[in-house]
Design a protein around this nucleic acid. Structure first.
Length: 490
RNA sequence: GGGCCGGUAGCUCAGUCGGUAGAGCAUUUGACUUUUAAUCAAAGGGUCCUGGGUUCGAGCCCCAGCCGGCUCACCA
């Protein structure tokens, strides 16, 4: 009855035309008639299936549940495998144990249905852990078929658009996302144990500061103001440093209104850490300790294959000042060259140079296009030209350089860290240059906080999605984000 | 945004020179009490991404578009 109404009122014409769905609704109706309601209640299981395997004992009475992912029906018996996302487990169902009706009903089950069973554990003659089913109950009827059991779901687009199916049919995808959860938890454990406080700062900001990126815009009706999704939490976390929260971090989403590609998703997870009375060195030690900790405790290894390279995370990681690195690749006399000579070299290297670039810009362009990508093993680039990094503190021995690092792994930028600028007058000057005359873009509240005095501070941002790509050997950011951004289907 | 590749049954994929739309799994029916990509026999199942065009005839050729992948550029 229920199913009939459902069919008439709710089913789209497209879905109604699906032979598989029709058949499953028919099976559902028959099951309900036979006393097996299609959508059961909570089921108290002895254990999840992985635990059932690890604590397996012949003769033990258990209750288990999961989705039917394979079924082999025979005349008077059947085998099935159920899966609950932790493991698969085999069931054996025999007519003489269940009785005619319950056995006949069992044969109406389809792949994808979710059931609960009670029975005794035993080992088949092919030596597989199995539940000999004494009773079963239907917990949820699947109206649509699952992807094929052998090849699974491989179509990349469908995998991203229907992640549920991807998780059901690709155990390695499930494993990867469980690893992601472990990494997030272990980052928190690691930082908490070192006295860092996790905080939450605004996602909706009236001025989107802390980075140079285009924000997403929204409107807040109650205040009748436009707001922005944050592009970085930096300016709020520094306020907390001013306020005396000496060690803080935030592990959460940033939003940037930019293009999509293999390493960019418009919302991405970022870890930002600030450490009062520290500097870039504090962060350098912290990130090495943290990343190797994650590698050891969660992945149990220090070498990771990523984008065709083997990356060795053993510390200490190489550190090289920017100027030394440039000289290594372009010659010891590079910084004695003229702009014309540098531009000529760029042309030889096939690096495009815009009209009007100065020597430092040309050098950086060459660095960006031809040097950064060659840094496969973890490398800290330090002492960058001040022009490139407007929000960092100058090096004490050279005001032309700033006291920062950029961590490069696998040729990709994983993390920048600064000895943070805490001079409010200098900070205002740089904001004004950045805002280019638009005073509404200057975060006056932040500047005021700085004027109350911020201790010298080390700060760092880590792109967690990219770190996860490295740790899981993924070539695309979409493979480490459960629901990556996609265009609406046409 | 440019270039290249792809979109065919629920899933994974073939499809020749432009000539009735194919396979495996899945589904249905039957057989089957230790199977595990169960097996055996039979059957049903298609908006060939969308819209135009060429042609007697288009899954295939042409044009435009949509979605995806790779890549280059841009952005950071």
């Amino acid at each position: 009855m229920f199913a009939a109404n459902f069919e008439e009122n709710t089913m789209s014409e497209e879905a109604a035309g699906n032979e598989y769905r029709q058949q499953r609704i028919e099976n559902m109706n028959q099951l309900e008639t036979a006393g097996f309601p299609a959508f059961g209640l909570a089921f108290e299981r002895t254990a999840q299936l992985d635990e059932l395997h690890s604590t397996f004992e012949v003769g033990q009475q258990v209750k288990a549940c999961g989705r039917i992912v394979a079924i082999r029906k025979m005349g008077k018996m059947a085998f099935a495998h159920i899966s609950d996302g932790s493991a698969r487990f085999q069931l054996m169902v025999k007519k003489d144990m269940l009785g005619d009706d319950a056995f006949a009903a069992f044969k109406l089950l389809d792949l994808g249905d979710i059931i609960g069973v009670a029975g005794e554990l035993f080992i088949t003659k092919t030596e597989e852990n199995t539940v000999r089913v004494a009773e079963w109950t239907l917990l949820s009827k699947a109206l649509l078929p699952l992807p094929e059991k052998f090849h699974g779901l491989t179509d990349v687009e469908t995998r991203y658009r229907q992640r549920s199916l991807d998780l059901i049919s690709n155990p390695e995808v499930m494993d990867l996302f469980k690893k992601r959860t472990q990494v997030m938890r272990e980052i928190r454990n690691f930082l908490d144990a070192r006295g860092y406080y996790e905080v939450e700062t605004p996602m909706l900001q009236q001025i989107a500061g802390g980075a140079a990126a285009k924000p997403f815009k929204a409107h807040y009706n109650a205040l009748n103001v436009d707001v922005f999704m944050r592009i970085a939490p930096e300016l709020y976390l520094k306020r907390l440093i001013v306020g005396g929260m000496d060690r803080v971090y935030e592990l959460n989403r940033n939003f940037r209104n930019e293009g999509l590609d293999r390493t960019h998703n418009p919302e991405f997870t970022c870890l930002e850490i600030y450490h009062a009375y520290g500097d870039m060195r504090t962060m350098q030690e912290l990130i090495q300790a943290m990343v190797t900790h994650l590698a050891e405790t969660i992945f149990g290894k220090m070498e990771f294959g990523w984008m065709g390279n083997i990356i060795d995370l053993k510390t200490p990681w190489r550190e090289v000042p920017y100027h030394e690195l440039v000289k290594e690749h372009l010659g010891n006399d590079w910084f004695d060259k003229t702009l014309a000579e540098a531009t000529a070299k760029a042309e030889i290297l096939d690096v495009h140079i815009e009209e009007g670039m100065n020597f430092k810009q040309v050098t950086h362009e060459i660095y960006d296009k031809t040097i950064e990508g060659t840094l496969i093993q973890p490398t800290f680039i330090t002492r960058l030209p001040a022009e490139l990094v407007p929000l960092a503190k100058p090096c004490s021995d050279d005001p032309e350089l700033v006291d920062v690092f950029e961590l490069i792994i696998g040729g990709k930028e994983i993390s920048p860290a600064y000895s943070e600028l805490n001079d409010p007058i200098e900070q205002r000057k740089r904001f004004e240059e950045q805002a280019a005359g638009d005073g509404s873009k200057i975060d006056e509240d932040f500047l005021m906080a700085l004027e109350h005095g911020m201790p010298p501070t080390g700060g760092m941002g880590i792109g967690i999605d990219r770190l996860l790509m490295l740790l899981t050997g993924s070539d695309a950011i979409r493979d480490v984000i459960l629901f990556p951004q996609l265009k609406p289907r046409g």
